[in-house]
């Protein structure tokens, strides 16, 4: 636990420092690399929160893909070495003031709310000691192994909701003995069995997944169309 807390504060500091540097820096390449710091540290925070797949995706898609694209864009649109487009000092001071006030409002709001209704559940989940959370399975992040539940949810099967785990206690006794997938050995009771009450089945994310994939294809075509080579406008 202690090591996790030290890691948390280290990467929390790096995340915030990077974000502030992005906001105050005038050099766009420095901004881009402060953004690398922020997004990379956020990925570590995701890992600390037990979301290993999302953390890795953040690194692969955001830091390794999107940011390289951004830096590429910076280089293509730079008119000279180390270009700076400055905001006026009045703008900077005003936005700084507004930012501090805004941060105060947002931060005091989110930290003032007691997110678990005074039960200390969140605290217990964080310490990994809350028996009901572990038993109920709505916290598959405990081991940090979320790849399979996530993959199943994209195939419209909610491992954490439908496979007994996470069901209300009064229903968890009523389980079907049929295997989920034909040929699958129902070896471990409680992990491979469907509830009898099929009305409780959740739908998963197959449709959004397909929509997003089509969306990505459209974006691919659209971006290629927009960025295609054209005759440059004369000055």
């Amino acid at each position: 636990m202690t090591a996790q807390i030290i890691l948390f504060w280290l990467f929390a500091f790096l995340t915030c420092a990077g974000a502030i540097l992005v906001a105050v820096s005038q050099n766009v390449v420095r901004m881009a690399f402060s953004l690398v710091l922020t997004l990379g540290s956020t990925a570590v925070l995701f890992l600390l929160l037990g979301a290993d797949f999302v953390g890795a995706t953040q690194l692969l898609v955001y830091v390794g893909g999107t940011l390289v694209l951004l830096v590429f864009g910076v280089m293509l649109t730079a008119t000279g070495p180390f270009t700076r487009i400055k905001s006026s000092p009045a703008d900077a001071i005003l936005s700084g003031l507004i930012g501090v006030v805004f941060l105060f409002i947002v931060a005091s709001t989110v930290t003032a709310v007691d997110w678990d209704g005074g039960n200390g559940v969140a605290q217990k989940i964080a310490m990994g000691t809350h028996a009901k959370a572990v038993e109920g399975g709505f916290n598959p992040t405990q081991q940090g192994n979320t790849t399979r539940p996530l993959g199943l949810s994209f195939l419209s099967l909610r491992a954490d909701r439908d496979l007994k785990l996470g069901l209300p206690k009064e229903l968890s006794g009523e389980i079907n003995t049929a295997p989920v997938v034909p040929g699958m050995a129902a070896a471990t009771p409680g992990t491979t069995l469907l509830p009898k009450t099929s009305a409780l089945l959740s739908t998963g994310y197959l449709l959004p997944f397909e929509i997003v994939s089509v969306h990505l294809l459209v974006v691919l075509v659209g971006a290629a169309y927009l960025a295609r080579t054209k005759r440059r406008a004369t000055t």
Binding site: I20, T42, I85, S95, L103, V106, W115
Partner: peptide, 29 residues
């Protein structure tokens, strides 16, 4: 252990910095 509040605070910092960035920067990127 660390509860949700510190994480939400970091989220707030990121959000505010992003909004400031969007409003003040003149560089499109």
């Amino acid at each position: 252990a660390i509860g949700p509040s510190p994480f939400l605070f970091i989220g707030a910092v990121l959000f505010v910095c992003g909004v400031i960035c969007m409003t003040t920067k003149r560089n499109g990127i």
